[in-house]
Design a binder for these strands. Structure first.
Lengths: 274, 274
DNA sequence: GCTTGTGTGTTCGGATCTGTTCGTTTCTGT
DNA sequence: ACAGAAACGAACAGATCCGAACACACAAGC
């Protein structure tokens, strides 16, 4: 493996995973850690990535920012667990929709690393997700973008998005949410995004909401789905007991993903058994 | 194995693998490393590949995209000059469309750095352009994405894109092209992309084609515009004299941007005056 | 025959890259 | 706060690659 190939490998890894470890890269590329270190140093000098202890993180990625602070690294851990747990709802050959936001972005990352990605068709209104799939060079995956006006968070919304979505049909949709309100449902601050989320839900057989525990504390403007509309809500194990109970009153299926679990992110907690 | 056979072998290898090692090539083709070295040197002089320690890498591959600032500075220099020259066709408050490709990407970069960006509305079928504008946090710019199926080069094409485009209207469109064929017009390898480019042209008052001089040597499958349809073609000053003359026979306005010029990229060459 | 030119292989000193060692710094669990 | 573990980077040594120079083979032309 040639030097520039290694660098490309590293950059691609960064684009799809947001962060890389030197030890992993060393093993996967079959070179010493020192060589990887030197590659990363070089790339960092060119501003292509940012060095951190143990590896490197992407500078341009959506996740780059949160990864820097220690506090929100925990958040990413939760999101990661949620994403892994949500994978179980993807079946081979499905046509799935993925909404905007960082949680669904992490979900897309995990999905691309899994074996289920083969033969999927992905509809998304998130430009980062679209680029992610493309950059991963995953085979047998078709990506369709909804179009629309670009929001602050790189989601595509508005009449154009809604109209495109309305002419399509998917097996399941995976959405993030800005706020979970009991007992109303799921909300977002942007009413156009709410409309687009609702459009995605209306064309989907199954609806899955990905929301870490902090979302229960937020409040937002626009409702895009009731609790009942979600076939499953995937959150993390840090959600307080009483909120779990009250949420279960409205939601058909509430999954608590464990950040420590290595397999599918769902730990062996009693409350996971219905 | 004859010299030209070897060169083809090397280029093919590059196309499929992105990078090659001299030692490998030497063994596989049954010639000494020195011969391979000479072949690669020759191909590099022709711009067919880029030499690196230990082998060679493809110039057109993914390498070009992430490493804009690093290498192939000449290519980027040309594209940059073209992009700066094209800025003159953007008026304040315009609604403009920007197509896919690396040249238009550089154009978008320049546009965001200029003062003209204020109040613009940008329609694009390129997800990198969309993200670029969003990431720049430019104020007063609205970005609309066409939607559609994502191609290898991160452009959005197909019926969805065409339908969305058909319902809109813009002042001017800026398109890259894979090939300039005299006297036919502008071509791209992807017929769906050709259709989408044609759709963009059909909704635009003015059409501007950005093409560096190498595009005159390429050949492609699908025509998306005739020479006449372009209100202006912006290329670089390295385009040979006779091609300039022959192109001027079909195109209303051919601009030769000078890579050295610091202002708007159009040098004071006699042939720039009509 | 000889010459010339082209293309290829070999040698070799220097440049560049890579791996290992080892003392230091930084993380992490208790 | 502390100790052990992991990661870091400087420095050295070995491996690899590079390119210039020269030698050789072969074909074309005189």
């Amino acid at each position: 493996m040639i030097a520039s190939q290694r660098r490309l490998f590293i950059l691609n890894r960064l684009r799809t995973q947001g962060a890389v470890r030197i030890a992993d890269l060393s093993e996967e590329m079959g070179v010493s850690t020192m060589t990887v270190r030197r590659d990363i140093t070089e790339l960092a000098d060119q501003g292509m990535l940012r060095r951190v202890h143990g590896g490197a993180v992407s500078t341009s990625s959506l996740l780059a920012e949160p990864l820097f602070s220690v506090k929100s690294r925990m958040d990413v851990g939760f999101k990661d667990a949620i994403a892994r747990a949500a994978l179980r709802f993807v079946r081979p050959g499905d046509v799935i929709a993925i909404g905007g936001g960082t949680t669904t972005y992490v979900f897309a990352q995990r999905l691309l690393q899994s074996s289920k990605v083969e033969g999927l068709t992905i509809l998304t209104n998130s430009t980062p997700v679209a680029e992610l799939v493309q950059a991963s060079e995953a085979h047998g995956v078709e990506v369709i973008v909804t179009g629309g006006v670009v929001t602050r968070s790189n989601a595509l919304v508005g009449p154009i998005a809604d109209r495109v979505i309305g002419s399509l049909r998917v097996n399941s949709v995976f959405l993030g949410t800005h706020s979970v309100s009991l007992p109303r449902g799921f909300l977002t601050p942007n009413s156009l995004e709410a409309s687009t989320n609702a459009a995605l839900i209306s064309i989907s057989d199954k609806v899955y909401i990905l929301a870490d525990h902090s979302k229960w504390q937020n409040t937002s403007l626009s409702l895009f789905a009731s609790l009942r509309q979600a076939d499953a809500v995937i959150t993390d194990s840090a959600l307080p007991e009483d909120l779990v109970r009250r949420t279960r009153q409205g939601v058909r299926n509430l999954l608590l993903a464990d950040a420590d679990a290595s397999d599918d992110g769902v730990g062996d907690h009693p409350q996971n058994r219905k």
